[in-house]
Amino acid sequence: MARLEHVNITVPDAQATAAFLTRLLDWHVRWEGNSLNGGYSVHVGETDSYLALYSPKSSVASAVPRYANSAGLNHVGIVVDDLDAVEARVRDLGFETHNHADYEPGRRFYFDGPDAVEYEMVCYD
């Protein structure tokens, strides 16, 4: 058996992205501190899985366009229990949702977060 424990992504401000995700998803910060090459990392998520958010000491380069860069991050998919409630929270935080889809085995929508990362929220009813 294998399971995904974490994904490490570069964001402009790891602490700001972690704060956003804790507000949106009720996640918690598991660890944070200085990391590779003078950067800063925050691990945010649940007990057994998380996102490792890394901000380098220097500014980050754009990863746009998505789906066109080798080893690029296209989006982060997160399973939620109540898709409608999470979408309301996303909108309350000032973000537009797009690409809604209802298909087997679940429903989903996407939004661009405050960190140039696209997030997919999915619910398996």
Rank of each mutant, 00 (worst) to 15 (best):
S35K: 04
G72C: 07
E5N: 13
C123H: 13
R3F: 08
N8V: 05
G106T: 02
L73A: 08
F95M: 08
P114W: 01
L21F: 08
F95L: 01
V122K: 10
H6D: 00
V44E: 11
Q15F: 03
H100A: 13
Y103S: 09
N74T: 12
V86Q: 07
A85M: 06
E32W: 03
E87K: 15
L36S: 06
V76I: 15
T47N: 10
V76T: 14
R108V: 03
R66Q: 15
Y40R: 08
D13I: 04
W27N: 02
R66D: 06
V60T: 13
R108E: 06
E87M: 11
Y67R: 08
R107K: 15
G113F: 09
D92I: 08
C123I: 01
H6K: 03
L93Q: 05
E46P: 00
D102N: 14
P12C: 10
I78F: 01
G106L: 02
D81S: 13
L4T: 07
S41T: 13
S55T: 14
I78H: 02
I78P: 03
R107E: 04
S62T: 05
F20S: 06
Y40F: 15
S59E: 15
M121F: 10
T47V: 09
H98M: 09
G106R: 00
A18G: 08
S58L: 06
A101K: 11
L36K: 13
Y119E: 03
I78N: 08
H100L: 00
A71S: 09
D81M: 12
L24G: 06
S55N: 07
R30N: 05
D112S: 12
V7Q: 06
E46R: 14
T97D: 02
V86I: 14
I78M: 10
E96H: 13
F20C: 05
